Computed example of a mutant assay.
Amino acid sequence: MQLTKDGVTVDLTGATWVKSSKSGPYSDNCIEVTGLDGPLIAVRDSKNPNGAVLAFTPDEWDAFVDGARGGEFDRA
Protein backbone atom coordinates (compact mmCIF):
# COMPACT_ATOMS: atom_id res chain seq x y z
CA MET A 1 0.00 0.00 0.00
CA GLN A 2 1.27 3.45 -0.88
CA LEU A 3 0.22 6.64 0.86
CA THR A 4 0.58 10.13 -0.61
CA LYS A 5 0.20 13.49 1.11
CA ASP A 6 1.41 16.90 -0.01
CA GLY A 7 3.34 15.35 -2.89
CA VAL A 8 5.18 12.89 -0.64
CA THR A 9 4.61 9.18 -1.23
CA VAL A 10 5.58 6.41 1.17
CA ASP A 11 5.27 2.66 0.72
CA LEU A 12 3.64 1.02 3.73
CA THR A 13 4.30 -2.51 2.51
CA GLY A 14 6.11 -4.26 5.33
CA ALA A 15 5.71 -1.29 7.67
CA THR A 16 6.07 -1.93 11.38
CA TRP A 17 2.94 -0.69 13.12
CA VAL A 18 3.08 0.22 16.82
CA LYS A 19 0.27 0.53 19.36
CA SER A 20 0.44 3.04 22.16
CA SER A 21 2.08 1.83 25.34
CA LYS A 22 -1.12 3.04 27.04
CA SER A 23 -3.17 0.41 25.16
CA GLY A 24 -4.00 -2.56 27.32
CA PRO A 25 -4.55 -6.12 26.17
CA TYR A 26 -8.32 -5.77 26.60
CA SER A 27 -8.75 -2.39 24.94
CA ASP A 28 -10.54 -2.32 21.60
CA ASN A 29 -10.19 1.42 21.00
CA CYS A 30 -6.62 1.44 19.73
CA ILE A 31 -4.78 3.01 16.87
CA GLU A 32 -1.50 1.94 15.38
CA VAL A 33 1.19 4.30 14.09
CA THR A 34 4.10 3.87 11.69
CA GLY A 35 6.67 6.11 10.06
CA LEU A 36 7.57 8.16 13.12
CA ASP A 37 11.07 8.64 11.71
CA GLY A 38 9.99 9.31 8.13
CA PRO A 39 8.46 12.04 5.98
CA LEU A 40 4.89 10.95 6.85
CA ILE A 41 3.31 9.45 9.93
CA ALA A 42 0.55 6.94 9.15
CA VAL A 43 -2.25 6.03 11.55
CA ARG A 44 -4.78 3.20 11.30
CA ASP A 45 -7.44 1.48 13.40
CA SER A 46 -5.89 -1.60 15.00
CA LYS A 47 -9.18 -3.51 14.62
CA ASN A 48 -9.24 -2.87 10.87
CA PRO A 49 -5.64 -3.03 9.60
CA ASN A 50 -6.78 -3.18 5.98
CA GLY A 51 -9.04 -0.15 6.33
CA ALA A 52 -8.41 3.54 5.92
CA VAL A 53 -5.04 5.03 6.80
CA LEU A 54 -4.59 8.66 7.80
CA ALA A 55 -1.39 10.53 6.96
CA PHE A 56 0.23 13.38 8.86
CA THR A 57 3.36 15.41 8.35
CA PRO A 58 5.81 15.34 11.27
CA ASP A 59 4.74 18.90 12.21
CA GLU A 60 1.05 17.93 12.22
CA TRP A 61 1.79 14.84 14.30
CA ASP A 62 3.86 16.82 16.81
CA ALA A 63 1.07 19.40 17.15
CA PHE A 64 -1.47 16.63 17.80
CA VAL A 65 0.72 14.87 20.38
CA ASP A 66 1.49 18.17 22.14
CA GLY A 67 -2.23 19.01 22.21
CA ALA A 68 -3.14 15.58 23.60
CA ARG A 69 -0.47 15.82 26.29
CA GLY A 70 -1.62 19.33 27.17
CA GLY A 71 -5.27 18.35 27.57
CA GLU A 72 -6.45 20.22 24.48
CA PHE A 73 -8.75 17.36 23.48
CA ASP A 74 -10.07 16.44 26.92
CA ARG A 75 -13.80 16.26 27.21
CA ALA A 76 -15.33 18.76 29.59
Rank of each mutant, 00 (worst) to 15 (best):
K5D: 07
T9P: 03
G67M: 02
D6R: 14
A15H: 00
F73K: 13
A15R: 00
F73S: 04
T9M: 04
D11S: 09
I31Q: 01
D66Q: 12
A52W: 03
A15M: 04
V65C: 03
T16I: 14
W17A: 05
C30I: 14
G71M: 02
R44V: 03
P39K: 13
W61Q: 02
A52Y: 02
T4A: 03
S46P: 11
L40T: 02
L12C: 03
P49N: 11
P25W: 05
D66F: 01
E72Y: 08
G71Y: 03
A68V: 03
T34K: 05
A55K: 00
G70A: 11
W17L: 04
P39Q: 14
P49S: 10
L36K: 11
F56P: 04
V33E: 09
V8W: 07
T16K: 08
P39G: 11
L12F: 03
C30R: 07
A52T: 07
T9N: 05
D11M: 06
G7S: 12
P25Q: 13
A68S: 11
G35T: 06
L54H: 09
F64W: 08
D66N: 09
T4M: 02
V18G: 10
S20G: 11
D74K: 11
I31R: 00
G35N: 15
G35D: 15
G38C: 11
N29D: 15
D62K: 01
G38S: 15
V65M: 07
N48T: 15
N50P: 05
R75I: 06
E32C: 13
A55I: 00
C30K: 11
E72Q: 07
A63P: 02
T13G: 03
L40V: 01
T34D: 10
N29L: 15
V10G: 06
L3N: 04
F56N: 07
